[in-house]
Design a protein around this nucleic acid. Structure first.
Length: 213
DNA sequence: AACACGATCCCCT
DNA sequence: GGGGATCGTGTTA
């Protein structure tokens, strides 16, 4: 399907110079700072000739060995291996047998932290995002499992280097006017201090933010 | 057995 | 159109 969005010049897609990836140093920092600074940035997905762009509006920080909610808090396993690697790579995993969730690895190599992308707002290529299935309105991308489906993100992107303008990366955007925070979603198994930590961040007032349980 | 979730019910405004 | 229950699905520790 050819996109007709006037904001995107098809000729620029080949070199993607207009959408430079955030550099590795961006991710080589405190996880909560990265989670905050990713709000307003744009997730870029190039898949089968389609360019899809979506603004990040909700994130969660997962802070390694000291965070009992983090998958990597005990030891390295085949699943969590990517989190122990260098920052700027994708940590993608399956939950509940059917939903892929996208994280970006942060902090120096060996410190297994990541930021979960929980919700995005379509900016361009929305028709391609909707092509896969019939969903109404904001159900397209207002949750961590919904956005991966819309953007065709699955295990094939496990460990993918997101600092290169290829297949999946993040480019800078406009920070939100206000950032709100609260406890992370779906981590009842964590220690109380971790469970209650306000490490879920979102763009205040943005209607694409996920609905919590 | 539990899981960083979503779709589909049902019922209530 | 929204809150609550329920179940699907396959990987993980």
């Amino acid at each position: 399907m050819a996109h007709t969005d006037p904001l995107i010049d098809v000729n620029r897609l080949a070199n993607t110079a207009a959408l430079p990836p955030l550099p590795r140093d961006f991710y080589h920092r405190d996880t909560l700072a990265v989670a905050r600074d990713l709000l307003g940035c744009r997730l870029v997905r190039y898949y089968e000739g389609e360019l899809m762009i979506a603004k990040i509006v909700e994130t969660e920080a997962y802070r390694g060995s000291e965070d009992s909610a983090c998958h990597a808090h005990r030891r390295k396993t085949p699943r969590t291996e990517a989190m122990f690697g260098p920052p700027g790579h994708a940590y993608v995993y399956l939950v509940y047998g059917m939903h892929w969730l996208l994280n970006v690895v942060t902090q120096p190599e060996g410190n297994p932290c990541a930021v979960l992308i929980r919700a995005v707002e379509p900016v361009s290529g929305e028709a391609a995002m909707r092509a896969l299935r019939d969903v109404k309105g904001r159900n397209l991308t207002n949750g961590p499992g919904k956005l991966t489906r819309a953007l065709r993100i699955d295990k094939t992107l496990y460990g993918h280097d997101m600092t290169q303008p290829n297949a999946l990366w993040i480019t800078a955007g406009t920070p939100p006017d206000a950032v709100a925070s609260g406890p992370r979603v779906g981590i009842d198994y964590a220690q109380p201090t971790d469970r209650d930590a306000p490490w879920r961040l979102w763009s205040e007032g943005n209607p694409w933010v996920s609905k919590t349980r």
